[in-house]
Design a protein around this nucleic acid. Sequence first.
DNA 1: TGTCAACCTTGACACAGATCAAAACGCGCG
DNA 2: CGCGCGTTTTGATCTGTGTCAAGGTTGACA
Lengths: 248, 248
Amino acid sequence: MLNELTAKMLHPCGECPIRHRAVCARCDDAEQARLDKAKFYRSFEAGQTVIWAGDQMEFVGSVVKGIATLTQTMEDGRRQMVGLLLPSDFVGRPGRSTATYDVVAVTDMVMCCFRKKPFEAMMAETPHIAQRLLEMTLDELDAAREWMLVLGRKTAREKIASLLAVIARRDAALHLREARGAIEFKLPLTREAMADYLGLTLETVSRQISGLKKDGVISLKGKRHVIVPDYDRLSEEAGDDADGGILV
Amino acid sequence: MLNELTAKMLHPCGECPIRHRAVCARCDDAEQARLDKAKFYRSFEAGQTVIWAGDQMEFVGSVVKGIATLTQTMEDGRRQMVGLLLPSDFVGRPGRSTATYDVVAVTDMVMCCFRKKPFEAMMAETPHIAQRLLEMTLDELDAAREWMLVLGRKTAREKIASLLAVIARRDAALHLREARGAIEFKLPLTREAMADYLGLTLETVSRQISGLKKDGVISLKGKRHVIVPDYDRLSEEAGDDADGGILV
DNA sequence: TGTCAACCTTGACACAGATCAAAACGCGCG
DNA sequence: CGCGCGTTTTGATCTGTGTCAAGGTTGACA
């Protein structure tokens, strides 16, 4: 609660770190000002559930800082992650009142939120928001379809390499670098979360990471910090054709 | 070619069978008239490739009749279907010039097409099209994510049951019925296409269908006509919770 | 009516990844 | 510093699905 208060003051849109990629990216100054007045920040701690599938959603919003996951759970407990929410990603679906998936903060996280009703009203009136949201949704659809190939047809080793490549790419994009040559990044997920994303067990994830390490495709500093000496080699292990698939 | 000519005259928008579900569903009469002038029909025969991944896309359009698949192929030939295109589904991505996936007609098929440039212009000017496209894209994203659970976590038997349930639901929706009780439908896919959709081999597909038949979950008339005596039973076999997941 | 090609089914066996189990690591906390 | 707990690694074994191979069915066409 205290957290939420401090977060609330975080910053005016002008200095927002995700301004150029978020739903509001296309808005002009007047539209931005309107959003600025309506927005509020919410913070979540690592491990905290943002929303449960089936719950009423009173807000929509963008991830500003940190990482969250979108997961689906079957009655018997089998789980599948269906999305990884990184800074600038949008949460919530205009026109639908309940959440379809569980949203869980993986790291400490800050979201920029809007109450659903006013946001939908703004969407109807300012086409720039709807346009950008369409673009983002199409990108997510491409990412989901890319992931269908990973889940349906790749081996465990290729799956791990694919996940690392995706994170490496997005991390590079965040730092405005290109994904090639040597790359280092923090791996924000537990082995179990990786398993949930890849349709594997955590034991298999662990073994395959050990395998990639033994073969020099990656090396680790601690458990969660990955060093990729050669991005192209990783991409090859992922089974991606030459230029590493779709940018996420 | 002859086919295309006959198809071209097919019908004015007023009597279009997908009018109420397609991208144009929200358009008013004036907008509809404008689309009517710009549209042209194209026909494809079963087995024909509509477009190859990587090719230039000069048009976008809606499936009016028949079925097509969206597939992704790896260099070594592994294939994953990432979408099933049924009547009213939209093909192509505004703002992108090349196709991301192979689109192949599974049955004889008719599409209602627009050249990409004029369509994009109309989209910019008539928010109704963009709104509907956003809605459709969000639905497809949900479907893709539902499929991620199928691919990542379900057993072969559950996968087959899931596919049959999806087709049964869409077929029921097309005939404006609800999916429950006894249902019969034509199964438009070969075992191989089903395998590509489900991340299985065609042998496993065949064995699991035999299994479901033996256990009375389904029965077959010929190879391609499925009879489901009890939809709820099928849904249960698919591992879906009580009310059968997301409507597609 | 027979022939051919495409599609489907079934069987035997192999193997990738799951499952079960135990031990090692790493980090916060008294 | 050492304790305890969550996370990760590693090992042994099991199993569902893939692979390879051989027939069977169906429908179009001569």
